[in-house]
Nucleic acid binder design. Structure first.
Lengths: 221, 221
DNA sequence: GCATTATTTTGCATGATCCGCAAGAGTCCG
DNA sequence: CGGACTCTTGCGGATCATGCAAAATAATGC
């Protein structure tokens, strides 16, 4: 299934290509219809018609409408994990992830708009939430093992890798959430991500009120 | 069973009582059958028979089998949040939560075994996962607002409350996970929780190998 | 106690989803 | 071109979610 095909176009296989295309078509159809009518008003038959496939094929690719809708924004996160996995830096994992994520946020603002659209969808269609969070947890477990491998710790017995992975995720997700909820400009996001990672790396210093303007968006100095 | 009408009850209502009882009965039936046969082999009709109610009543209380199964272990977490909300300490939120949780782990290890059993169920029945993580996220959001209220920050614009809430959750969940995955004795859990919170508060110091024996369980020397 | 009201439980029906199965269409490889 | 393999499709059965109205049960007033 999700095997990484050879990097050369040599023998990619027309079959695999068509499979990916129909998958994308179904996912795109689900996304479009959901944005138009709301997920509970969309049936599998509707998605099938929109994607020019049979209803059975839709169920063949996705276990539920929700997964079809959410399949659109899955690729981005995987790329980040690959980059982290491929990095040869000796810095602490949190530093590597901070640089990776803030850089990505700076260079791919368009992708992030897609993520924001997703967040919007999720707010309007609560039934999407469980599936989305579940996907996040899967990524988190993957990141946990990557951190363990990188630092020579054991994800099954050590606290460290799991805690670091969770911290990175919360930093990224919290930044995205605040960025999206407050309609901040694209330029603010990288800084927000770095602020979040700094707060995490500093051990969450006790705040009362707003002593640190860098950690809030209410005073855009 | 009930003989005569209560003489000391301040109108609690027999109705409300029966409602709670049937709810518990359904949830318990769902849990029992799922542990026996696996959730995909359990139908709503089965649960209804086991709980001595009609199938329609099951759907009346829970939107899905999954919710019925998970309804069992919901109360514990709410108590912790209430304790945190009621605390008048001026310590940082993470310190308060650390003490609250390690104390709870020391005094109520049995309840936490129940939580561990749930985690086991989730591993064997993947369809439970979305519903469970969704519940966790709801608790996390609640904790986020409690932290914001306690520290005078704004959960919608500040990174701090969301990051702190996430950190506390990951510390607790990671401790629990490692505790039950390695079949550690009850006495180890409070210490594990405190280690996790210390690691979090220290900003996840970079480890390679196992320099800190307090952060691992592999060498109980 | 008895009747009235309010709430819960239940059965029934409908629309939708999930999944296994086998036939048809398309692709791959020699 | 032809066999082997894979994907698509239609069908059928089992399950599920939900609205609706009637039966059952608890609460309230007389």
């Amino acid at each position: 299934m999700g095997y990484h095909v050879p990097m050369t176009d040599d023998h990619v296989g027309l079959r695999e290509l068509k499979k990916l295309m129909t998958r994308d078509a179904i996912s795109a159809a689900a996304l479009k219809l959901t944005e138009e009518k709301g997920l509970n008003e969309v049936t599998i038959d509707d998605i099938a018609r929109e994607a020019f496939v049979s209803p059975r094929t839709v169920s063949n690719y996705f276990a539920s409408k929700e997964e079809a809708v959410l399949a659109a924004g899955k690729a981005d996160a995987a790329r980040i994990l690959d980059d982290f996995s491929a990095s040869t830096s000796q810095d602490p994992p949190l530093k590597i992830l901070c640089e990776l994520l803030s850089t990505y946020a700076r260079d791919h603002a368009d992708q992030l708009r897609g993520a924001a659209r997703m967040a919007d969808l999720e707010h309007k269609n609560p039934s999407l939430r469980p599936y989305r969070v579940s996907q996040e947890v899967q990524l988190l477990e993957k990141l946990c093992f990557l951190v363990a491998a990188r630092t020579g710790t054991d994800a099954t017995t050590d606290l460290y890798p799991s805690l670091v992975a969770s911290a990175a995720f919360s930093a990224m997700l919290t930044s995205l959430e605040i960025w999206w909820r407050n309609d901040l400009p694209d330029e603010r996001l990288p800084q927000l991500i770095m602020d979040a990672f700094n707060l995490v790396s500093a051990g969450y210093p006790h705040e009362t009120g707003h002593p640190d303007p860098a950690a809030t968006v209410s005073a855009p100095a």
